[in-house]
Amino acid sequence: MNEIPLEAGLLLATILFAIGLLGVMTRRNIVFVLMSLEIMLNSAGLAFVLAGARWGSADGQIMFLMILTLAASEVAVGLGLIIQMYKKFKTVDIDVLSALKG
């Protein structure tokens, strides 16, 4: 079919990862932090699919399925923790979680 430069795809994955990292470091609302984590996981999956397309094999897509599984379970547990945190502290500010024993 036609040619797509590999570096354009890897550049896209890197930009998305940097945006997600910026969101994780900057935002104080824990829901936004979790969303930025989703962006980062997604960019890692994009890099795997690109690598699989480079070698013409299905292994990259299989690794993306594993990342999808990981993201699903991570989000389920993380959102449960957010609900608990909101019940206890009545806020979504991550700075209230700075002590080990709340």
């Binding site: 590999l6 890197t14 940097a18 910026l22 397309a53």
Partner: peptide, 29 residues
């Protein structure tokens, strides 16, 4: 925003400066 942007920019530059330049020949898997 300043310091996190700087850190993310350093990461971005570090990765981008070592990207390979290959053309993918797309085949449907």
């Amino acid at each position: 925003w300043l310091l996190p942007s700087l850190l993310a920019g350093v990461l971005f530059w570090g990765v981008v400066s070592s990207l390979p330049s290959i053309d993918l020949s797309v085949s449907v898997i």
